[in-house]
Amino acid sequence: MNRVLEVKELKKIYKNGRGVSDISFDIGQGEVIGLLGPNGSGKTTIMKSITGLLRVDKGEINICGINVSDDFEVAIINVGCLIETPSFIGNLSCYNNLKMVSKYYSNIEFDRIDQVLNMTGLSKYKNDKVKNFSLGMKQRLAIAMAIYQKPKLIILDEPANGLDIEGAKELRKLISMLSKEFMISFLISSHQIFEIEMLCDKILIIRDGKIIDTCIVNNVTSSNMSLEDYFMERINLN
C-alpha cells in the first residue's frame, strides 16, 4: 500500500510546556485513521503540524513522499483539511469562498465547485453569505473546501461538530465513499467514539502528547470489547 502520510518523530512543544513528542505513524492509500485522546492530549497539534499551521520543533512529515518543510506547495496540494473551526470569508457567498480556493488548483475542472456543493448539500445556499450560515452549514462548507481539490489525504478535526443527526450520517457516508471508491486517506479526530468506530480502520490513542497505543478497530470489536472500553482501559493503564 502506498504511503500517503509519514510522520517521523514529530515534536512540537508550546511555551507552556505542553505539546506533542515522539509522534510517528503513517497512513496508507485509502486508509482511515482515527486520533483518539482526552482534551488537550495533542490531537489538533498533530494535525496542525502536518498542515503547516504550526512550526515543528523536530521531526519529519512527508505527504505522498514529499517533505512538507522542503516543498510545502507541492506537498500540501495533496491535502484537504478542516481543523478546529471552519475557516472562510464571512462577507462572501458560499460559492465565492469556494471560487477563491479553486484558483489555487488549476488542474481541477471549474464545475467541481457545483459538485462539492451538491455533495455537501449546500447547492441551494450557494449564493448566500456565509456569515448568515448556521454552525452545521459552515461545517458543511468547510468539508466542501477540504474535498474540493480531490486530495489524497483529508484531515478532519471533529468533523461532525455542529452537524445534525442527518448531516453527521451523510458525512460518514461521504467519508466511506471517498475512501473506498477514490482511495482517499483520512486522518480524523473525534470525541464521538462511535463515529470513529464506524469510520476508521486504525486508531491512534494519544495521551499527554504521546501515542500510547495503536489498534486495528476490527481486532478490538471482534474481541467482544467495545472501543469505548478499550480506550478507557488504555488511557487508565498508561
Binding site: T51, G52, L53, F72, E73, V74, I76, I77, V79, C81, I83, E84, T85, S87, F88, I89, G90, N97, M100, V101, Y104, Y105, M145
Partner: peptide, 13 residues
C-alpha cells in the same frame, strides 16, 4: 478570526 487558515493550508508558501 482564523479565516487565514483557509489560505495557509493551500499550495502557497
Amino acid at each position: 478570526d482564523k479565516s487565514i487558515v483557509m489560505f495557509l493550508v493551500r499550495p502557497i508558501t
